[in-house]
């Protein structure tokens, strides 16, 4: 059943520009580095930081809020497909479970974000190779950091999807999303327990894997809470 639901969800997002945004997001992150390296290449060389190591750091510095903004936009789009057209009553009157519907929305979003993350890895790799940075290409680190960021942001995905699906007025989840973006922008100052800090992969122990584990565990918890709340609501 979940397979069928996901396929219909992918049908419904046609022509909404969602795929375009999925590609634009990672492209934008790398484009910022293009500008960055285009303008300051000499400075990087002079400082002796024209290497893959610093390049990956630069990419990863922007990824959290690109990702959070992406999550805010995609979840709101996903919710608006049914919210705007009052189609929930049609969907829920089909022989499907409500948790199935919720899981399908979540999975569809997760797939889109994984595609984004893969593209980010590819684009970063491509531009890095074009720059001819010092040192060997750290394929594994690149993949690791891109996906770490994704896993660490799963709690935000769960929260935004929940709020977006139950809000009639999409201004609410989007305003919440703006808070999230600002929090992730200030990640450095935040205490470790705030979910918006996690995508920065920063913590007092300097162990990114902690954020990944927290992301997966808390992400699952928030997902469950959102799903249970969605299930017990009447469909208008």
């Amino acid at each position: 059943m979940i397979g069928k639901l996901i396929r219909t969800d992918f049908m419904k997002i046609r022509r909404k520009g969602i795929w375009f945004l999925t590609v634009l997001g990672p492209f934008g992150v790398v484009a910022l580095q293009m500008v960055n390296y285009g303008l300051r290449k000499d400075w990087f060389i002079q400082q002796d930081i024209y290497s893959w190591f610093y390049y990956i750091r630069n990419v990863i510095a922007f990824t959290p809020f690109a990702l959070i903004l992406g999550i805010v936009i995609l979840t709101s789009f996903m919710a608006s497909i049914e919210n705007e057209t009052n189609a929930w009553k049609q969907v829920i009157a089909l022989p499907v479970t409500k948790w199935g519907v919720y899981l399908s929305k979540y999975t569809t979003l997760a797939i889109l974000l994984v595609v984004s993350t893969c593209l980010l890895t590819l684009f970063s790799l491509g531009f890095g190779m074009f720059l001819g940075l010092d040192g060997g290409i750290p394929y594994l680190d690149l993949i690791k950091y891109c996906f770490y960021t994704f896993f660490a942001s799963l709690p935000v995905l769960g929260l935004q999807l929940w709020v977006a699906l139950v809000s009639k007025n999409q201004g609410i989840p989007i305003t919440l999303g703006i808070f999230g973006v600002i929090l992730s922008y200030m990640a450095y100052f935040l205490p470790d327990w705030l979910i918006w800090k996690w995508p920065s992969l920063d913590n007092q122990w300097d162990e990114p894997i902690i954020n990944v584990c927290l992301g997966l565990a808390v992400g699952l918890a928030i997902y469950l809470v959102g799903m249970i709340d969605f299930m017990r609501r009447d469909v208008k």
């Binding site: 639901l5 057209t85 189609a87 049609q90 089909l94």
Partner: peptide, 24 residues
């Protein structure tokens, strides 16, 4: 139920296809 639900950005065929997939 009440006014019909539909996805305006999809064609009539695609609208029905989203439901058909579920019924199989």
């Amino acid at each position: 139920v009440e006014n019909p639900s539909y996805y305006p950005h999809l064609t009539a065929y695609e609208n029905l296809e989203t439901i058909r997939k579920i019924y199989g």
